[in-house]
């Protein structure tokens, strides 16, 4: 398979996934897009192995490894910081009534302060975007550092 065909098929898979994502939101079923996403990525990996004119040598592999390692080194710290916060939400024991809100009537019962799923979703989205940006940024940085955009003297 040619490189361009692979990119074209990759674009088609992305479009299908986007449509399924929209449909999943419409029918309120996250399982559909979750399964489709995993299958889509597996399909992309299979297609990539069939590309014949895509040369991946030791330098490009090293750049990818280096970018992935640096992304991991930065991302796990941020991810753990968020996760620790989330774990604290689980371990928190609610107190009734809250002492910091003395103006409320004592008979009113407040639910424990758990991070709402919507906020969790936003944070996850932010983390996902951060990971992608970090990887792309590091990829560009190391590609440039190790001569991807050197001027040819030939």
């Amino acid at each position: 398979m040619k490189k361009n065909t692979f990119y074209l098929l990759g674009g088609c898979i992305a479009l299908v996934l986007l449509t399924l994502f929209w449909y999943s939101v419409e029918i309120n079923s996250p399982l559909l897009i979750e399964i489709a996403f995993v299958l889509g990525i597996i399909l992309v990996y299979i297609l990539r192995r069939r590309v014949t004119d895509l040369i991946e040598d030791e330098r490009s592999r090293k750049i990818t490894e280096k970018a992935a390692l640096r992304t991991f080194q930065v991302f796990w710290v941020i991810f753990c910081a968020f996760s620790i916060g989330a774990v604290m939400q689980i371990l928190r024991v609610p107190t009734f009534p809250r002492q910091r809100e003395p103006m409320r009537p004592p008979t009113e019962i407040f639910p424990p302060e758990i991070m709402p799923p919507k906020i969790m979703g936003y944070v996850q989205l932010w983390l996902l975007c951060l990971m992608i940006f970090l990887y792309v940024g590091f990829r560009f940085y190391y590609a440039r550092k190790y001569g991807d955009w050197e001027i040819d003297e030939e």
Partner: peptide
């Protein structure tokens, strides 16, 4: 030798030190 042109260019410019194998 089965690498990209950019790799040869990077080696020539001293931007990348190849493995012993290469």
């Amino acid at each position: 030798i089965g690498v990209t042109r950019q790799t040869i260019l990077a080696i020539e410019k001293g931007k990348y030190v190849p493995s012993l194998d290469l």
